[in-house]
Amino acid sequence: MQEKSTNPSKESNAAKSILVVEDDQFLRDLIVKKLEEEGLNIIQAVDGEEGLQFIKENKPALVLLDLILPGIDGFEVLKQAKSDPETKDIPIIILSNLGQKDDIERGLELGARDFMVKAHFTPEEIVKKAKEVLG
């Protein structure tokens, strides 16, 4: 509650904000609701292009990145973010329906902090993980 009151604007406190890149509105609404309950500042992107744009413009403290997205997919977003010196240190947690070993390995190799399969975790566990990464 304290954080929320001291940071009323998303724009003014980009360092503390979390970018959620998710094309499915239902899932996005749920996880955003859960994160906001924790007093975190949320930026939402609905596809890869927008996600990449917000990463560069807003430099969020953390990115929750879906992989299967219209246009540029999550892997590409991850690759580009990590190849840009300005954004390469922003931690990115992949939050995806893909859960096969090769997908996980590819994501981690590209520099993702963690790989969470949506169906294997509750929103509470995801928020917990996000807060861990934010420190």
């Binding site: 499915d24 239902f26 899932l27 749920l30 609701k33 329906n97 169906a119 509750t122 929103p123 509470e124």
Partner: peptide, 19 residues
């Protein structure tokens, strides 16, 4: 199928955790 299944799961999870 996984996306809606995940959405349903999260909904149930959040209902149970009082969200």
């Amino acid at each position: 199928l996984r996306t809606p299944l995940s959405a349903v799961k999260w909904t149930f999870d959040m209902l149970l955790s009082g969200d």
